[in-house]
């Protein structure tokens, strides 16, 4: 393992970029912050598979590629399977000694958006994790199908307006709650499952390094603020992510071996979810008097979840 030093930002900044610019992601997109950080936090060779989604269509616009590592794109659902297959082949060839460099450390990573992780690629991901392949799956969770124009996914939280769950006079947007993917993946018994956010770069880099080091399937859900579909100014990407982690909408925590929960970030001043919702255009309608109760509902859910996480951490379960 040749992990880059992440003691502080100055040390970290001496690492060399392996995710190149001039991809066509929106200005201010958090996807590239997350991907860049993953590729910078290790010197090992990386084999990366990517589901269809914003990241894939933007980083491989023919005739260009933004990836300085082995990278494959196949279908909407099967990045997990592709990474698992590549890893199985690597192990077999390593055993036979038929690799070009048998000692070179290689890490397998799969990227998917929330659509391809929570919905379309769910079965593939579940299968690959159950089979215990040594790879890291990173979900770039922007809470909708941003690549195709912002349809609802099962990661879209309650109350958000999307193109297929529109808010209006008869609806407050999506009516269903967000799927708890971290709990589902932890229930698979995966050795490392975490939820991380790019504004806390250090805990994110630490989590990435831990996941890459850990043998077996690791799952990381990262918060990726989407300026286009969440409807905020691109310059506020980090600010919105700060609000998300400080209001505990996205608590940052890890679950080891499915039963050891650690909270990685405790905000000094917990803010109300109202502040987070107010900063985004997709929740604008919730501030009308008839939909005010949804904000209270979201606040209650967030508080309950935070209590649950704290109790679990205390009880070491």
């Amino acid at each position: 393992m040749a992990a880059t030093s992440i003691k502080n930002l100055k040390e970290f900044s001496t690492s060399n970029d392996r995710f190149e610019g001039a991809h066509t992601l929106c200005p201010g997109c958090a996807h590239s912050m997350i991907v860049r950080e993953l590729m910078n936090c290790t010197d090992d060779n990386l084999v990366i598979a990517t589901n269809t989604g914003c990241l894939e269509v933007s980083t491989a616009v023919y005739p260009f590629t933004s990836w300085d590592t082995s990278w494959i794109h196949i279908g909407f659902e099967n990045a997990a399977t592709a990474a698992a297959g590549a890893e199985a082949m690597y192990k077999a060839r390593k055993r036979k000694g038929s690799l070009k460099d048998n000692d070179a450390p290689v890490k397998f990573v799969a990227f998917g958006g929330d659509g391809s992780t929570y919905d379309i690629g769910f079965q593939w991901l579940s299968g690959a994790v159950e089979r215990g392949h040594d790879f890291t799956y990173i979900c770039l969770d922007n809470e909708n199908y941003a690549n195709t124009g912002g349809q609802r996914s099962s990661a879209t939280p309650i109350g958000a307006t999307t193109t297929t769950a529109q808010a209006g006079s008869h609806s407050y947007g999506k009516k269903e709650k967000k799927k708890d993917m971290i709990a589902i993946m932890a229930a698979h018994g995966a050795p490392y499952v975490a939820q991380l956010a790019p504004n806390k770069w250090k805990s994110m880099a630490k989590g990435f390094q831990k996941a890459l080091e850990t043998e077996g399937p690791c799952f990381i859900n990262t918060v990726s603020a989407c300026c286009t579909e969440w409807k905020f100014d691109p310059k506020d990407t980090i600010g919105i992510t700060d609000l998300a982690t400080d209001s505990l909408i996205f608590p940052i925590y890890e679950i080891i071996d499915g039963h050891e929960l650690n909270i990685l970030y405790r905000p000094k001043n917990v803010i109300k979810v109202e502040d987070y919702l107010a900063a985004q255009g997709r929740y604008k309608h919730l501030f009308k008097p008839e939909y005010k109760h949804i904000i209270e509902l979201i606040q209650k859910d967030v508080d309950d979840k935070w209590n649950m996480l704290q109790r679990r951490e205390e009880a070491r379960i």
Partner: peptide
């Protein structure tokens, strides 16, 4: 660390400038 377009040129812990070929102005 937060530039989404890998456009901040840093070498030896020092910031040198901006890579205007890849900056999107976010």
């Amino acid at each position: 660390v937060w530039c989404p377009d890998s456009s901040i040129l840093s070498r030896d812990k020092q910031m040198l400038g901006i890579d205007y070929d890849h900056c999107k102005g976010c």
